[in-house]
Design a protein around this nucleic acid. Structure first.
Lengths: 343, 343
DNA sequence: ATCAAATTTCAAACCGCTTTGGATGGCGAA
DNA sequence: TTCGCCATCCAAAGCGGTTTGAAATTTGAT
């Protein structure tokens, strides 16, 4: 059942039916009701493809996911971000189109998405320092919002990000307050912008308190269980082993914990761990009492906000770039305690 | 730059240009080359929206993700499945559209996706027993492939699944061979079809060897770290505590391990754990030597295969439903060993 | 040189909707 | 009674491609 047929059924022109259904004022209320009723009765749904061609809009948002190198992105937090963004899209009648492409095809994918008119806007994931994709998207001239920020970007752009620097600064201060001095940072890959900011927060806090950060207590790798484990292993086996760890994610924190427990260390007593908790739906940090002390910020919420921001930009293209900086909570759990006395 | 403009530039009709670019035979080779060159020169990309309307095809596949109840789906394996499927789509010029919707809107979403012509086919995720979505999609009359199977479905349908029953049967046999008798099953939610099959494999193996499965050693819950932890905790605190665990996922296995290690049990010596390993990109089961003994099957590969199957069905709609049963490998890691003698 | 067949190209219809620019009719004001 | 203004509806022209049916041109055989 399409518009023409429905119009015929009603003895009306397609014009009027279209207007009635789309809430235009120049149609008699009685007529509108008739049309709406008939549409419902016949389960009429306007054809998306036709609407898109006629309006020149895609009613779709693109997310490009590079396959390999940047596969950091294909990590657990991605699913939750997508869930949050997707929620916003379906609430607003937008589709989410995901492009999973080989790394070298990423740039071309952005260009195509624009020039073929497949989407009205994009979300940019996992920005790196001086990320080339930001000037690219700006040049392509399509609305976009970055999840995160990229240090070194020349032009202003819209983003939603967690205050990673502040979060890790506070976490570090918290550990320092507990008397810890040999604090280790098990960071994500430091070509990722968020990892750089976290490191800054960490070293800033240390320096302010007159503690010189020990480079051998700073690791940077993918945020997997195994790499967290390996980093902690290395550090714990040194002469001056750390009394506390800052881990970049729940998963790498699990690896750190494994290394600690293997050595008979009790969490919160012999060694402290603070993780960054993205508040993932399937990976809760405990229930009533958090397992880990953590800097927490919901990545799902970030997804929602980024999507809202993007739809808003699409609706009001003239406005200046928007930014939204989210503060992480510092949640006290069972994995931290005073620095052990005798070390 | 659109088709008409390009045609004008070339002094040709849009018809010929379209045919030249789409590889139709009724166009002079010399002309085709001219057209292709000009198209490249002007960075011409045919408008997706127009193609879709003109051909009556969406060149897109839908994945519907319900938000809450079935949020089992929004779990780490989802991201990898999506990555696999997305790879196949972009290789074939298809888009992937993800709909994240409230549970109660799921059925309507399927109907809409079909009647609005937004997609040419769908992938159905996380089937449950007697899943109502399968007859629904069949009735809607749109090509679809199920990731998993649904016991109790009346009509045949296409699916890609792991042989979960067999995998867990083999894992159980392996533990029995090591002398274990009190084996615990930390299963996923047993309204999920895969969980039912895994349980069957587990109990089958036990019964064949003359061991009666102990219902209090079978837990069924979401596959989170915490719930794995709690289940193991309960079981370990019983008089006749298990000497081995079968865990439904890497994450719940981590919870089981935490409970074990808290009690000073050494993995592979005091207690054995086998997990099911979906071979997630960011959650490797160790590197050279697997941490956990595991039944392994790449969910990413499953995504690839399901997508290929679906595209094939769309291209050849007349053919009977296809099925693809993947066997999981049994990988020996460090988390299993002979049953402790003195228990 | 002639004509039928094959090759190459094109004009126009179409996909299903939106939207522009009237047409129509009813109404109150003059 | 007449005119202008609303309120309401409609025909037709897009949107940017694909595809049908026919025209123009070449080719090949006679």
């Amino acid at each position: 059942m399409n518009l023409k047929e429905l119009a015929q059924q009603l003895g009306l022109s397609p014009t009027t039916v279209s207007r009635a259904l789309n809430g235009y004022p120049e149609v008699n209320e009685a007529t509108r009701e008739r049309v709406v009723a008939a549409a419902k009765r016949h389960h009429y749904r306007p054809n998306t493809r036709a609407i898109r061609l006629a309006t020149g809009r895609a009613f779709a948002i693109g997310h490009v996911i590079p396959l390999a190198t940047r596969h950091e992105i294909m990590n657990p937090i991605f699913a939750d971000f997508i869930a949050g963004a997707g929620e916003t899209y379906s609430k607003n009648g937008y589709d989410m189109v995901l492009s999973v492409v080989a790394d070298e095809a990423e740039e071309q994918t952005y260009r195509d998405l624009k020039s073929r008119g497949t989407v009205d806007g994009m979300i940019l994931h996992a920005p790196q320092m001086d990320d080339a994709r930001i000037p690219l998207l700006a040049a392509i001239d399509i609305p976009f919002v970055v999840h995160g920020r990229a240090t070194g970007a020349a032009l202003p752009y819209s983003w939603v990000d967690v205050n990673n620097r502040r979060a890790f600064q506070r976490a570090t201060e918290f550990l320092l307050d507990l008397g810890h001095r040999r604090i280790a940072l098990v960071n994500g890959l430091e070509n990722m912008d968020f990892a750089i900011r976290r490191r800054t927060g960490f070293t800033d806090a240390m320096v302010v308190r007159g503690v010189t950060p020990d480079p051998s207590l700073m690791a940077s790798d993918e945020m997997t269980e195994v790499s967290g484990y390996r980093a902690a292993q290395r550090m714990l086996d040194r002469a001056a082993s750390p009394t506390a760890f800052l881990a970049a994610s729940m998963i790498s924190g699990m690896g750190v914990r494994r290394a600690c427990e293997e050595r008979g260390l009790v969490l919160g007593r012999d060694v402290s761990i603070i993780i960054h908790d993205d508040d993932l739906s399937y990976m809760k940090n405990g229930e009533d009492v958090p397992i880990y002390t953590a800097t927490r910020s919901s990545v799902r919420e970030a997804g929602r906000l980024a999507a809202e921001m993007l739809l808003d930009i699409i609706a009001n293209p003239a406005v200046a770039p928007r930014q939204r900086l989210l503060e992480a909570e510092l949640i006290i759990g069972q994995s931290t305690g005073p620095a052990p006395a005798r070390v």
